[in-house]
Nucleic acid binder design. Structure first.
Length: 842
RNA sequence: GCCCCGAUGGCGGAAUUGGUAGACGCGCUAGACUCAAAAUCUAGUGGGCUUUGCCCGUGCCAGUUCGAUUCUGGCUCGGGGCACCA
């Protein structure tokens, strides 16, 4: 038996070049197959250091890429850097270092870390979004969109983050706060570039149905976000206080059958009619101002309280002719539907609340069948119409049909579909982003930068301590000539939202240096991405933008792919317990030690309180540095640990014990699988089959993303080998070779090191994955459960696939038979081959 | 408030179309080795009992079935998403 320990430091150093030699696109381990497999993990933001979340994400992808390569696929497994963004500018302010050098240094460091982790990546296609070769291509895309009307400019109220001093997209506002800064978002009017994502709302929604290998949860979130709603739009005549017909107001509803229950009309404070009448009504003006201020807080609690202002205007119900008051109300959204609603308090919760507060008439129009409660508002799903003129007595479905027909005949209404999804505002008032390639000319307007002047590069001499956008504050950069008329003009000083950068990078990997933005042929060949892996936090933001971008590029004829990601896997977070010192400081795990069942702070010896295990974060200091782990235990241990125990879609808790255990197991594998570790005896067939069966299950688990189960199978194999060794039975070299090929996907350094100790002819990285189909699922002998009335009473070891007669005979010989069956009447015997035999007795 | 998901030992978690619940790991207990400890190895480890063996047990209550962690209905608790979208 071998006595020396496995030294991960020398082994990982020696094998680094071989382990991380990249698979180049267009090559495969099996020359006969040309089937492609695009394996992609969400590319990282170069913050400076790899964290445990990255380790988990990239290990998952790496195992898959290695396995697919060994299975003969032409694998594309690239890596890039989501390199634009605010932290670089903040670093520039704080550390007086240029965003570019800060970012590039971080990239260099993180790339080294990823290599040390043993990732199997095609570095020849590496890209960084902050380099002109990338963002220049992005500018070309923007100009194409401009040409095709997908990009347009409009004055719009935008979400303004007062801390980051920038505009945020709707998706970046969470609970009224900036997603990054956490500051309360304000509303501000600015001239902004938008992308017409709303034009794609329906196909983005329909496309979700084709994404069979996406998590249900993400599909649902996107569906809700797009928010398709089919209803009816109709117009309501508005009269002045003295009955004079002024205009029509159009409203959208999904409950048009309740039209006879209309007891008021509510308009948004942004509605044209309200704006017009506010000019002569100071009270209305004041009301609108208060509501606008509440809304600007973008704080839900401030808006939760419904406020209304009764105008002198009168609305006439187009079907009943009834005249009802018109309100300006804070709860009516200006940018959904037509910014106006009719209120039906009897059958709508919000309207009911409003009517209660302002003492408005409540008129019931449906007599419920399924809702017996008397409480208003009624929440019926079925019922008959009442108080609805000629429609009385109809059930809801018929009433909906008839009322719509009537509205159409009278030419006051029609069916309409609305979406919650708004156009995507992409202008950001920041320096460290892709400059929008447009020149604003006083006479020609917004003029695209001519192609031969691309890329529009960022100036390097910039003052980051100025207020607002450093790019706009640059003394010369923005001044230029109009490409059309030659007059003095100014560049657009806004840069693109970084989500724009990340919504097409997966296509750029196919031609990272090319001048043209996309290599259409290569993209068509490798896309859609066969497996995309990343965090759930991008369920709507990045993943919706990327889907939109792909469809938009498809529409303008740049690619022929509709959906970018065929399969999506969202992995869980890496968590760790939190530690707090006596005086309330957060402590890093390395600052604490367990002693006699108590946790104490190493420096002071004082006791420490342990908090719950939560996502690793700098603020709570519950972080473990991957560098230290790799240094101390090796990359294989780190990889092994993040894959074991917890299913990858769930959060995993990082524990010292867990890492220690993983490390010990690496040592154990080293002993069990080494040639020198094999005893000198005779191997048995049974052991070999058991091991191969485990490998087959290991493979199936990996294919299903059940990495924790795959790991369990390796432990099982170790136990099998261990007991074989005790009986002085060596394991066949061929079996060991198969195990090592499979392990190479998970723990490449150790697998390669052990492999080198045997005299195999082909290098491990050139070996094909074992053919699992050839391994039989059943052993020669199986254990069958003997049940009486569904209760387990004994087991039986018999040859596989035995006939029922034979099994029954065997059961007769068991003590179980005398005890439970012999004296009873057997009503029925249920036999499931190789599983159970169940006696139903009375 | 609405929508979705989940609940299995001390812990993380296994369990093909309903078919031997608790694989595998951690932790724990005992033993071997050691002056001792660590490491390693061996055995045990859901609960209970009158312990050759039996009873209970997958959040709770019912149901379907020869048989339910798995299917159906109703609850309880936990997690996530959306939040005036008319």
């Amino acid at each position: 038996m071998t006595s020396e320990r496995y030294n991960h430091r020398t082994a990982e150093q020696e094998n680094l070049a071989a382990v991380s030699h990249f698979i180049k696109r267009g090559t495969s381990s099996n020359k006969d197959t040309s089937e492609t497999f695009y394996c992609l993990e969400m590319f990282p933001y170069p913050s400076g250091k790899i964290h445990m979340g990255h380790i988990r994400n990239y290990t998952l992808g790496d195992v898959l890429a290695r396995m697919k390569f060994a299975k003969g696929y032409d694998v594309l497994h690239p890596m890039g850097w989501d390199a634009f963004g605010l932290p670089a500018e903040n670093a520039a302010k704080e550390k007086n270092i240029h965003p570019q050098s800060w970012t590039l240094e971080n990239i260099a460091n993180m790339k080294m870390q990823l290599k040390r982790l043993g990732l199997y990546i095609d570095w020849s296609s590496e890209l960084a979004t902050c380099l002109p070769e990338y963002y220049g291509a992005e500018q070309r895309i923007f100009l194409e969109f401009l040409k095709h009307g997908i990009a347009y400019k409009k004055e719009a109220a935008v979400n303004w983050d007062p801390v980051d001093q920038t505009v945020l997209a709707n998706e970046q506002v969470i609970d009224g706060r900036g997603w990054r800064s956490g500051a309360l978002v304000e509303k501000k009017k600015l001239n902004q570039w938008f992308l017409k994502i709303s034009d794609f709302a329906d196909e983005l929604l329909e496309g979700l149905k084709t994404l069979k290998d996406w998590p249900e949860k993400v599909l649902l979130m996107q569906e809700k976000w797009i928010g398709k709603s089919i209803g009816v739009e109709f117009s309501i005549p508005i009269l002045s206080a003295d009955g004079e017909n002024i205009c029509d107001v159009s409203v959208f509803t999904t409950r048009h059958e309740t039209i006879f229950g209309m007891s008021y009309v509510a308009l948004s404070i942004e509605h044209d009619l309200i704006k017009k009448y506010a000019q002569d009504d100071p009270d209305l003006q004041a009301f609108c101002k208060i509501c606008a201020e509440d809304a600007a807080k973008a704080d839900y609690d401030a808006v939760a309280d419904k406020k209304g202002y009764r105008t002198a205007l009168i609305a006439r119900n187009p079907l009943s002719g009834e005249e009802v008051p018109v309100y300006a109300a804070n709860y009516v959204l200006s940018d959904y539907g037509s910014g106006a609603v009719f209120g039906c308090p009897a059958h709508d919760e919000r309207d009911y609340e409003f009517a209660q507060k302002y003492n408005i008439n409540i008129c019931q129009v449906i007599l419920a069948e399924d809702d017996k409660s008397d409480a208003l508002p009624y929440t019926e799903k079925a019922g008959k119409m009442i108080n609805s003129g000629s429609f009385d007595g109809l059930d809801i479905t018929d009433a909906r049909k008839k009322i719509l027909e009537t509205l159409q005949q009278q030419k006051v209404g029609s069916q309409k579909t609305t979406y919650r999804l708004r156009d995507w505002g992409v202008s950001r008032q920041r320096y460290w982003g892709c400059p929008i390639p447009v020149i604003n000319c006083p006479s020609c307007g917004a003029v695209p930068v001519p192609e031969d002047q691309l890329p529009v590069t960022l100036p390097e001499d910039v003052d980051f301590n100025c207020q607002g956008n450093p790019l706009a504050a640059h003394p010369t950069w923005k001044y230029t000539k109009c490409p059309d008329c030659g007059a003095d003009a100014e560049r657009d000083t806004d840069t693109l939202d970084t989500f724009f950068d990340s919504s097409w990078y997966f296509m750029r990997f196919l031609s990272p240096k090319a001048e043209h933005f996309i290599d259409r042929e290569a993209v068509n060949k490798y896309l859609p991405v066969d497996q995309y892996i990343g965090g759930i936090e991008h369920a709507v933001l990045h993943l919706l933008y990327a889907r939109f971008m792909t469809r938009a590029l498809c529409k303008i004829g740049a690619v022929d792919v509709q959906e970018p990601f065929k399969a999506l896997f969202t992995q869980g977070m890496v968590c760790h317990a939190t530690y707090k010192s006596e005086d309330g400081r957060w402590l890093e795990p390395v600052e604490c030690i367990k002693k006699d069942g108590q946790i104490i702070e190493i420096s002071s010896g004082r006791p420490v309180t342990m908090g719950p295990s939560i996502k690793m974060s700098k603020s709570k200091k519950n972080i473990v540095d991957p560098d230290e782990i790799i240094q101390r235990y090796g990359a294989d241990t780190a990889r092994w640990f993040v894959l074991s125990d917890s299913p990858p879609e769930k959060d995993v808790e990082w524990t010292e014990e867990g890492v220690e255990a993983a490390y010990k197991f690496m040592q154990k594998l080293w002993v069990l699988l080494s040639q020198s570790g094999q005893p000198e005896g005779t191997a048995t067939k049974e052991t070999s089959h058991k091991i191969m069966l485990c490998l087959k299950e290991y493979d199936a688990a990996l294919e299903k993303f059940a990495f924790n189960k795959a790991i369990a199978k390796i432990y099982e194999i170790a136990n099998i080998i261990s007991s074989a060794h005790k009986k002085n039975q060596p394991i066949d070299a061929g079996i060991i070779q198969n195990i090592l090929i499979c392990l190479y996907a998970i723990i490449p350094f150790l697998a390669m090191e052990i492999y080198k100790g045997w005299d195999y002819k082909t290098a491990i990285q050139d070996m094909s994955w074992p053919d699992m189909a050839k391994i039989s699922d059943v052993s020669d002998e199986v254990t069958v459960a003997v049940q009486v009335l569904g209760k387990l009473r004994g087991t039986l070891l018999i040859p596989a696939n035995s006939a029922q007669d034979f099994v029954e005979q065997q059961v007769h010989a068991l003590p179980v038979y005398d005890k439970y069956i012999r004296d009873k009447t057997v009503k029925k015997i249920i036999y499931v081959p190789n599983k159970i035999i169940n006696y139903v007795v009375i």
